[in-house]
């Protein structure tokens, strides 16, 4: 009796893995539905409490409220410099910051 062929074994395994990968898309759709409630709850909470940021990094105020960060407290160092707070190395300062900095540079709204 011939033994099982390696090629069949490998192709069947790969086919199984490939169908599992395909199944992740179905699983993703299912999970999305399952977690839709949580998402809605968060959206409500954001609206009610007038939240502005995701609670991803709690170690420093400029990473906790990333969008509220001011130009001077955080990111004062060169973008490639090592941050004091490790998570500060993970996120970049809001692009708006440099833009408003530009405004400070050029426009003088109040007479000197």
């Amino acid at each position: 009796m011939p033994v099982a062929r390696l090629s069949h074994l490998a192709l069947v395994t790969l086919a199984c893995a490939a169908s599992l990968v395909a199944a992740t898309f179905a699983d993703a759709a299912w999970l999305r539905q399952q977690r839709a409630g949580g998402m809605a709850q968060m959206r409500d909470l954001v609206e009610q409490l007038q939240l502005t940021d995701l609670c991803l990094f709690t170690e420093a105020r400029y990473t906790r409220h990333l969008s509220q960060a001011d130009l001077h407290s955080a990111f004062q160092d060169h973008p490639l410099g090592l941050e004091h707070f490790p998570t500060g190395s993970l996120v970049l300062p809001p692009t708006r910051l440099t833009a408003s900095h530009e405004r400070l540079d050029r426009e003088t709204e109040v007479p000197d």
Partner: peptide, 17 residues
């Protein structure tokens, strides 16, 4: 990685996209 030096880290389940 996301925690950095913080103690408090949110446990969240992302909606898969």
């Amino acid at each position: 990685v996301l925690k950095g030096w913080a103690v408090l880290y949110p446990r969240f389940e992302l909606s898969p996209v």
